[in-house]
């Protein structure tokens, strides 16, 4: 890839307002011509957004003031607030959670009627991103099919 002078900065926002801040900031950029080329809101980063800019982000600039935007994340020394592009790449292509689940893994359900229950993975449907689980505490083992985003891994490997 060719060299460019773009840098990526992390901005702190209120938790839950990441998308709103990104959209308001995008509108401000279009209106005022601040040099921001892209705004990234990864789902895995709560309370932060990443901004690609060819100039340093200065919070004192009134054009960048947006509600719920708390500031630029600074490094230890001045001018060290940049993030390497290589580090950002992993946010651009998020790996589906399901690819890290194995048969026999212990998971916790994080939504749906069985929220909070622990279960053992008995089958994985990668194409539909679904897993078939068996609730650990249930008296009678009943297979339950849930989407990959409804579970959290507790124990990766089978015993």
């Amino acid at each position: 890839m060719e060299d460019s002078k773009n840098s990526i900065y992390a901005l702190k926002t209120s938790v839950g307002q990441e998308k709103n801040v990104a959209r308001m900031l995008a509108r401000k950029v279009r209106d005022s011509g601040i040099e921001i080329n892209a705004i990234l809101v990864p789902e895995s980063l709560r309370g932060y957004i990443l901004v690609e800019s060819s100039s340093k982000i200065d919070m004192r600039n009134p054009a960048i003031r947006v509600p719920h935007l708390r500031g630029v994340v600074e490094g230890k020394t001045e001018g060290e607030s940049k993030i390497e592009f290589e580090e950002v790449k992993r946010f651009l292509k998020p790996e589906p959670i399901i690819s890290s689940i194995k048969k026999g893994s212990i998971v916790e359900l994080i939504s749906g009627p069985f929220k909070g229950e622990r279960a053992k993975v008995i089958r994985i449907d990668e194409s539909r991103e679904e897993v078939v689980l068996e609730l650990i505490e249930a008296a009678v083992p009943i297979p339950v099919t849930v989407k990959g985003d409804q579970i959290r891994i507790i124990q990766k490997e089978a015993d």
Partner: peptide, 8 residues
């Protein structure tokens, strides 16, 4: 999921 706003 995830949001990316491309301005330029």
């Amino acid at each position: 999921s995830g949001l990316l706003i491309i301005i330029d």
